[in-house]
């Protein structure tokens, strides 16, 4: 093990597997928060942008990605009392195996790219790809809107990490813009879902409730 960042990233890989196997939304959000934190601090470790602006941007990213978004979704889940994803399209055991395959595939694929960061961290690109595809997998394999949002954010984490690997200067501005969009998106989705839930409850119709939650 050469680099500290690889150790942290290996935990991110695990968190992907964990999020695939987790039926509890709280667990999923914790995994997501962890990914968000790691993804935001990775630029410090691989050595570029230790400028004041860079640090500021990274810290803000950390705040939003690692704390604000997960916290917001967490609170939302508490409010609508959705705790579990009960009927995934692809079962949890199957998802775990898919996750393992995904990581292997990401490792194999990332060898084909030559990215500047490969000299410092071997796991950066594989993790980024795994996050990206893993998020898509969650979008595909889960039924509930909430889980799908979480998948979408996972995917976004991956995109950010891909950006980091390419070490382009001043990419923070663009990334930051995207991040704010995501934040806004999450909030809007939360509001909409909550309203749907309220409508459903007042209408007494139970059948389509399970897009948000069904215990």
């Amino acid at each position: 093990m050469t680099h500290l960042v690889d150790i942290i990233l290996s935990f991110v890989l695990l968190s992907i597997i964990f999020s695939f196997g987790s039926s509890r939304l709280q667990g999923l959000i914790k995994a997501l928060a962890f990914q968000g934190v790691v993804v935001s601090i990775v630029p410090f470790f691989i050595g570029h942008d230790i400028t004041e602006g860079g640090v500021l941007f990274s810290l803000t990213t950390l705040l939003i990605r690692g704390i604000a978004i997960p916290f917001y979704i967490y609170r939302f889940i508490e409010k609508v009392a959705a705790h579990r994803e009960l009927e995934p399209i692809i079962g949890y055991n199957g998802s775990i195996f898919t996750g393992l395959l995904l990581i292997v595939a990401a490792m194999a694929v990332s060898r084909k790219f030559s990215v500047p960061s490969a000299s410092t961290s071997l796991l950066l690109l594989p993790t980024a790809i795994s996050l990206l595809v893993g998020g898509m997998f969650l979008l595909m394999a889960r039924r509930k809107a909430i889980t799908m949002i979480l998948g979408y954010i996972t995917m976004e984490n991956g995109i950010y990490l891909v950006g980091t690997t390419f070490s382009v200067r001043a990419h923070h501005i663009v990334e930051f813009g995207i991040l704010l969009d995501v934040l806004a998106g999450v909030m809007i989705m939360a509001v909409i879902l909550q309203n749907i839930k309220l409508k459903m409850q007042s209408g007494g119709e139970d059948t389509s409730l399970n897009i948000i939650s069904k215990e």
């Binding site: 690889d6 196997g21 775990i96 990581i103 071997l122």
Partner: peptide, 22 residues
């Protein structure tokens, strides 16, 4: 329980894959 035990397999698998990379 199977999922819990399967986690151990996932851990061992990821460890193997990562280590081999290095």
């Amino acid at each position: 329980v199977p999922k819990f035990v399967l986690t151990s397999f996932a851990l061992a698998f990821v460890a193997t894959i990562i280590t081999l990379e290095f």
